[in-house]
Amino acid sequence: MPRPIPVPDATSKPFWDACNEKRLIVQHCTYCDRKQFPPEPECRECGWHFHLSWLETSGRGTIVGYSVTYESRIQAWHPEQPFNNVIIALEEDPVINFHSNLPGVPVDEVPVGATVEVEFLEVTDGQLIPEWRVVS
């Protein structure tokens, strides 16, 4: 299915480049000792940019809830309806969350609370995006 492809910008390019190396990274402010995702030009807490670095994550998380999309605003997704929209909380910082469609899991049978691991899905030549699979 052709789906919308992320267009990296100056702030997000390191994240998408890391995905292409099958690494899941988030920003880290060394001054605030705070993780940040999605990436931003500055730390939302202290407002400085020069304490921001990138941190590789465990790639593990927990399903904290979901919905099922029956009518999407995004036309490319219409052929896939209905589909799962799942939210993952990162293991080392549950405030940080990610999207997933949980490939292979039947619609509306999402195991909330289950542990998941990141995997990477090629959405176009040369671009991977994070996806997640249930491990327990």
């Binding site: 789906r3 267009v7 919905s67 995004i74 999207h99």
Partner: peptide, 28 residues
Amino acid sequence: ESSLEASGNAQWSSPWGWGLSGQGFTFD
């Protein structure tokens, strides 16, 4: 949204078809 290019904030949501599911998720 008809574009296949997800730029700006859409890069974090459109590749997974996220939209009104946001209200559904919070309600869930």
